[in-house]
């Protein structure tokens, strides 16, 4: 049902009531105009019932149907006006848009560096890749993933040493199949410095200093060792050569000072 100043249609009764607004303020009402009669005038019609049309109505309809003559310069003026309008920027609706961009614009202003940076980052771009470029990109990603996995594995393995152990063998923690982290411990309450020397550091007293616990009595250090049998000793106060009292002595004391020995297995079993 329509209802405006010019007419209404009651769909319930199939009767149409048309009002034609007259310039003089009068309103004439025409009843019983058939609805949907196929007349494209929309106001009355020359249907099959041969109802005579009001001449005024025909005249008004004819006037309304007459095409408006537009001058050829109108198109030019309209296009000039359109071209003169500024192009709509994305940030016109930037602040009103929900999401990160809108929040950034609301917080920092639509022209702030943060908002502009975000617009630069979030603006979609068309990137063309050749098959070779795509292959290179994919291989680069795969290489990065491989490096990340490898470094992550190394990190986990390198930090898997036990906190404390009573003997070097019991302190073994796997790092790789052939390398394990061994913790060496010496109880030396009166020592000022303690260092570990052995086959693994070319017997250099300054290569592997040991650290004292808070009590100052227990000295320890962790060393990665390859699988096999390693001779070692402690150097206390830079002068005393001390074998490990909790480990077997190494045979073949060629230099008059005993050493200890630690056996590192191929892998933890």
């Amino acid at each position: 049902m329509t209802d405006d100043a010019h007419g209404y249609q009651d769909s319930r009764t199939t009767r149409t009531r048309w009002s034609v607004f007259e310039p003089m303020g009068q309103e004439e009402v025409y009843d019983d105009v058939p609805e949907g009669d196929g007349n494209d005038s929309g106001v009355g019609g020359s249907g099959a019932d041969d109802t005579p049309l009001d001449p005024l109505l025909v005249a008004v309809a004819g006037e309304l149907r007459r095409p408006v003559e537009l001058g050829p310069e109108l198109d030019g003026r309209v296009m000039a006006l359109v071209a003169a309008e500024p192009r709509p920027e994305r940030d016109v609706s930037f602040a009103a848009r929900p999401g990160a961009a809108g929040r950034l614009a609301a917080r920092h202003g639509p022209t702030s560096a943060v908002a502009r940076a975000w617009r630069w980052l979030s603006r979609p771009r068309l990137v063309q890749l050749s098959p070779l470029g795509g292959l290179a990109f994919a291989s680069g990603l795969a290489a990065l993933l491989l490096v990340a996995l490898r470094s992550g594995t190394d990190t986990v393995q390198a930090t898997s040493a036990p906190a404390a152990a009573a003997s070097p063998v019991a302190a073994a923690a796997p790092v790789a199949d052939s390398v394990q982290v061994i913790q060496f411990v010496l109880v030396a309450p009166d020592a000022r410095t303690v260092a570990l020397v052995g086959d693994f550091n070319d017997w250099q007293a300054d290569a592997t200093p040991m650290r004292a616990a808070a009590s100052g009595r227990v000295w320890s250090v962790q060393v990665p060792l390859s699988a096999g049998r390693h001779r070692y000793a402690f150097v206390v106060d830079d002068e005393r050569w001390v074998p490990d009292p909790s480990a077997p002595r190494a045979p073949g004391d060629d230099f008059g000072t005993p050493n200890s020995v630690v056996t590192v297995t191929e892998r933890r079993s």
């Binding site: 020397v197 086959d199 017997w203 250099q204 150097v235 002068e239 230099f255 008059g256 000072t257």
Partner: peptide, 15 residues
């Protein structure tokens, strides 16, 4: 390793 062991002990004053 054995040679370096001797050198290390000598460096610490062993005969």
């Amino acid at each position: 390793d054995r040679a370096l062991e001797g050198a290390g002990k000598r460096a610490l004053g062993r005969a």
